[in-house]
Design a protein around this nucleic acid. Structure first.
Lengths: 145, 145
DNA sequence: CCGTATCCGCGAGGATACTG
DNA sequence: CAGTATCCTCGCGGATACGG
């Protein structure tokens, strides 16, 4: 199986938006993933079992949750502890590395919570009127940036 | 046209991973989007024209870039300034709100750059061996968390 | 140069059923 | 309980062509 973390650079490695040879862009994609952000945030509040995560995250299928957790485990962000009694118990928890990720991820989360209203307002205004833009009449032929 | 920012809560609003009534999850999804993060980061380094963005981001189609910029504009994170001369010029820049987003987004970016090697190593180790997990033999029937 | 419109392939991801 | 396997759909996103 091949996951998103395996894909290589677009094709042109000379122009790189994220100044790097080994593609943090790819990592960014993983980290920015919908379920990844939610799961890591949940685990940040304490270890949890599979079914606990499924309930607390809300709206995630078993398939996607398992897939997400596998990726996180593979990336060294989450550890999976199995208790082999019946009924079986599996507990997921963040690794030290995973906990470092929690910091910036919570910053993003905080931003969302803080500005969700502002964004909502902006959307309403944008959608409200056809938004007749003034359109600056051109001067400046084509300056050097 | 309906974008991702329009979709509502999963269905069960009682259990909410992101403690909110007005769904910052949805915003999170937008903010975590692949192209959004890249574009905002680029604009953080200075205003840019459409074609400049397309080149600097790398690997993005005109369609996706336009779509991304439209979303960002609608969300009040980016402003679009049109100069109506020939050849036409369109300059995109972050709004003050957009600049606030830049802070947490750059934190995530910094994390990716800092730990890309650690993650890469974890992946290698994970993939290397079939990873025969010890599996903790069960005690503790089912404690209260 | 800066987009939008149209077509379309492909893979993400839900539903369901089955194992340990 | 904690997944895996299989099917199937649906919309993301690339390619292409056209308009302002």
């Amino acid at each position: 199986m091949v996951t998103i973390t395996d894909i290589a650079s677009p094709e042109d490695s000379s122009v790189d938006p994220f100044r790097a040879g080994c593609e943090p862009r790819v990592l960014l994609h993983t980290v920015g993933d919908k379920w990844v952000t939610l799961v890591v945030n949940m685990l940040g509040d304490g270890d949890a079992r599979f079914s606990e995560l499924q309930r607390s995250v809300g709206g995630v299928s078993r398939k996607m949750l398992a897939q997400t957790l596998r990726t996180l485990e593979r990336d060294g962000l989450v550890v999976r502890t199995v208790y082999t009694n019946t009924p079986p118990r599996v507990v997921y928890s963040l690794t030290p590395l995973g906990r470092t990720l929690l910091v910036p991820l919570r910053a993003v989360r905080a931003w969302c919570e803080q500005y969700v209203d502002a964004v909502s307002d902006a959307q309403a205004e944008f959608d409200g009127r056809g938004d007749v833009q003034p359109a600056v009449s051109g001067s400046m032929p084509t300056p050097a940036r």
